[in-house]
Design a protein around this nucleic acid. Structure first.
Lengths: 183, 183
DNA sequence: CATTTTGGCTAACGTAATTAGCCAAAAAGC
DNA sequence: GCTTTTTGGCTAATTACGTTAGCCAAAATG
């Protein structure tokens, strides 16, 4: 095995398959085929550093997905596309998404750096709304709150599944965005 | 020191003051003035059981706050009051709120039991909307997603604070509920 | 070819959760 | 009122994990 990047890729897979909470130095070392202390050659910050790297990986990934999803779209269509992209990421990478929701608290410094990229993508679409700066921030926060909250809850199984989750999400996105456009 | 209930009260305080993540058998035992093994006389399930009890405490508390907040209100006013009540709980009990967001995954069985009370309160107001069952569920999920997501993000410091969080929340609630009522 | 860096290892340590097994005081039963 | 059981605490020991120290071989670099 070799460099950080490959190890993080393995960790990302593990987080998604077995849960972010089940990541430990031992399980990671086992999966890589190495003894626990060897990981410290790559990550002197230990487990915390690995978890941060997963979070950073996640934000970069989200940045790309959101930017792609909004290409050529403005206003309602742009906002909607970004909401769907973020939820799709949460489904594709539940473990990484968990890392992002959770590990925030520790690392708000680093976190603000990292999220700048994402916020930049978002602002391109937000600008097309021609709202003032404060209102754009309200919109951004509202959308993030809804999508991250909804995704967190559904991934944790808090919603049950008798009624379609996809339809609930669509309903919520439509309601929120229609409220944003009209207000 | 004596019974479960008093110990949980202390744990709730600790979670809110020092963070849910910092709860450990040792810190709890210290605070109570007892040695770690003694806690197992009250909670045979160990730390996990304690964390579950905190979650249950939280849901009961939320149940009461939501029910009180919605008294005598219907439709928009009722929904809005419940959203504000839930966010107020998150602010008043950040540690317990964290427990609720986090510990969901482990305990979806128990969790579904516990949330029935809350969902009952909510349904009283939802019923006043005169929507069909499926749509009521969409509304419920959307509101929960938004409020829990927004609160989680602000408590984790993910939003910054240059622009008023209260105003962003108000904006989001108004947008979402207005979208819900019109749809 | 010499040297440094890289990436691995074993051994040891500190701390946390938990279990086993003991014991005194309070509570309940006769 | 005394006996017995339950309650709630303890110390000691176990297990598991993150981490550090210090050693070593192969690969990369000069």
């Amino acid at each position: 095995m070799a460099k950080k990047k490959e190890i993080i890729d393995v960790c990302v897979k593990m987080a998604d398959e077995e849960g972010f909470l089940n990541l430990s130095v031992k399980t990671i070392a086992d999966r890589i085929g190495v003894k626990p202390p060897s990981l410290y050659k790559h990550f002197q910050g230990g487990l915390d550093e690995i978890k941060q790297e997963i979070m950073v990986y996640g934000w970069n990934c989200i940045d790309i997905m959101i930017a792609k999803s909004a290409v050529g779209k403005t206003r309602e269509a742009g906002l909607k596309a970004m909401c769907y992209a973020l939820r799709e990421f949460a489904h594709a990478h539940p473990g990484v998404f968990e890392a992002i929701c959770w590990h925030n608290s520790y690392t708000s410094e680093l976190n603000h750096e990292v999220t700048k990229g994402v916020i930049a993508s978002l602002y391109a679409v937000l600008d097309s709304l021609e709202f003032d700066e404060v209102r754009k921030m309200h919109v951004l926060r509202s959308l993030r709150g809804f999508v991250e909250g909804f995704s967190m809850l559904e991934l944790h199984g808090s919603f049950g599944d008798e009624i379609s989750l996809d339809e609930s999400f669509e309903y919520g996105v439509n309601a929120l965005i229609s409220g944003i456009m009209k207000g």
